[in-house]
Amino acid sequence: MIGRLFDVKEFAVHDGPGARMTFFLKGCPLRCLWCHNPEGQRFDKELMVRSALCEHCGLCSRPAENELFRSYGRNPASCPKGLISECGEDLTPSELVDRVLPLKEILTSMGGGVTLSGGEPLMQGDFLLECCALLRDHGIHLALETCGYASEEVFREAVGAVDYVMMDLKIMDPEAHKSATGVSNEIILKNARYLMESGREFVFRTPLIPRYTDSPENLEAIASFVGEAPWETLPYNELAGAKYSMLNRIYPLDEKKENEI
């Protein structure tokens, strides 16, 4: 079995309790306008070019030996500044575990563990569950970061496989949710209700996106849905659009702003 990552980070301080190592799984069913990890949206591998530092030496046009690189039309392996990278790394669950084990002691001593995030990690449900099972055998604390958009079956299994769940609740109005994220929130809310009753430790999270999620009506609606359950808001990241140009894409919120002007 093979999974696909777009990033791995150590010491992600806001990804669950203690100090954590976070694996970002590639691919997401949502297309949130404010997404700050656009390279996590598509499952397919893609090139990321940090063109701001490019000196236009032209070496990346040298033909690549690697077939995939040839298909990109640029050769990441010949950029002398390492500005071009292929985003998307395939590995097996046991390879993922091999990366965690050397750090097990430090993760444990800092009261942390591993967080599986994305993208949307539940899109690679089988891989995720297998990773969880192996990591659990090593006694590693597991957290899941999800948008909650997954089949009930996958969602329930995943909740059962981890120690802690961080789940987004973005917009309560179904229409508004669909227009801002591309999908209806029906499944999400259903899964959220399950989570509340699952007995699993969790937190709901709402990113505060100006004009999309931060209206008093939306926040009140979320508050009433959440009730007494743990819920936190996340401030809007001003640099959210930074990676779009590296993927040769346009940050949807910038585009909208320009259209309004």
Binding site: F11, V13, H14, G18, A19, I106, S109, M110, G111
Partner: peptide
């Protein structure tokens, strides 16, 4: 930005402690 929250500060302090203990 790591230091923006109390959580970030606490975790950084733990990291230093881990470095010393290692």
């Amino acid at each position: 930005s790591v230091f923006d929250t109390a959580e970030g500060i606490e975790k950084t302090a733990k990291l230093v402690q881990s470095f010393i203990r290692m």
